[in-house]
Design a protein around this nucleic acid. Structure first.
Length: 295
DNA sequence: AATGTCAGCAACCGCAACGCA
DNA sequence: GTGCGTTGCGGTTGCTGACAT
């Protein structure tokens, strides 16, 4: 027998939501919070499946949503992020506060695609339409190029703008050498944490971003730098120590510090036993590059 | 005014990842 | 380690309104 359906389809409404349904959903979530979508409809007295409720809330009813037209700045940011990340709409949405992945996806398909075509740019590859695909690296979009390339020791900083800088370094352990990423983001740390908790398996795709980022998008502040892994570079006190995410944020001695819990072997130089940074509680050992590849 | 076409957007569907027993 | 239930993502569909004929 296959999996049971997510809802009893015979007894659920479909199609557009009514005002009454919206009100029920809003009041229920205000009272009980998000989550447990499967049981929510029954508890809220809605004849909808949990999926439908979740979608309605996330894409339309959430109070922090920014309604209205996209600005020119948002347009350009979406284009740049798409060139880096591909159709990772949830990731792109994470960089645009108040916008949902569905909204951005629709906006891309209806407006930006056409806008790029009018500029003579292929929206799929972000390269000129009339440019012959003379090499794989140039004919593929950036996000597709990256995972064809061997990983190297590289530190990458990504920022939506250049106000604050939050830096951490993450090893990707299944590649021959250590890949590290530094995130410099104006997004509040807590927002980043929230986003990361939901999307950590995709967020790491940013690690695929390499030198050509700046070449492609010179005015997008990605603060790309290439450097040896930080632990090998300096900080004598950490030389024989593994850094947790908390310390990587400069919060050494914090109660959340878990450096000493991390098991790692920094002396081998082997990536699979490389210094382990506990990024948001994800021990280095869990990073599986293959699992992070774009579809 | 009636009909056809198209664009925009909300919602659905299938699948994969995740978490837990 | 495995199987099952739940959640989230991305592609696709279909409804609706605006515009053209």
């Amino acid at each position: 027998m296959g999996r049971s359906p997510c809802c009893e389809k015979a007894h659920t409404n479909k199609g557009a939501w009514t005002k009454e349904e919206d009100d029920r959903l809003i009041s229920y979530i205000r009272a009980h919070g998000e989550g447990c979508w499967r049981s929510l409809p029954k508890a809220a007295g809605l004849l909808r499946c949990g999926k439908s409720c979740r979608l309605r809330w996330i894409n339309y009813l959430r109070p922090d949503l920014k309604r209205g037209n996209f600005t020119e700045e948002e347009d350009e940011l979406i284009i740049k992020l798409h060139s880096l990340l591909g159709n990772k709409w949830s990731l792109i949405a994470g960089r645009l506060p108040g916008r949902t992945d569905n909204e951005i996806k629709n906006y891309w398909n209806t407006h930006i695609r056409r806008k790029l075509l009018n500029r003579g740019i292929d929206p799929a590859t972000h390269r000129p339409l009339n440019e012959p695909p003379h090499s794989q690296s140039q004919s593929q979009p950036l996000h597709l190029q990256n995972h064809n390339q061997n990983q190297e020791a590289v530190t990458i900083a990504v920022a939506a703008s250049a106000t604050t800088t939050t830096t951490t370094t993450i090893p990707v352990v299944t590649v021959p050498t250590t890949t590290t990423i530094s995130f410099a983001s104006s997004v509040k740390q807590e927002q980043y944490h929230h986003h990361y908790n939901h999307h950590h398996h995709q967020e790491i795709n940013t690690s695929m971003i390499k030198g050509s980022v700046l070449e492609r998008c010179p005015d997008l502040n990605l603060e790309l730098t290439i450097s040896p892994p930080r632990q090998q570079e300096h900080d004598e006190q950490f030389k024989n120590r593994n850094l947790c995410f908390v310390c990587s944020l400069g919060l050494q001695n914090s109660k959340d510090c878990s450096c000493d819990e991390i098991v790692g072997n920094s002396s081998t130089g082997n990536a699979s036993t490389a210094p382990a940074y506990d990024f948001l509680g994800l021990k280095a050992g869990v990073w599986d590059y293959k699992g992070l590849e774009m579809k």
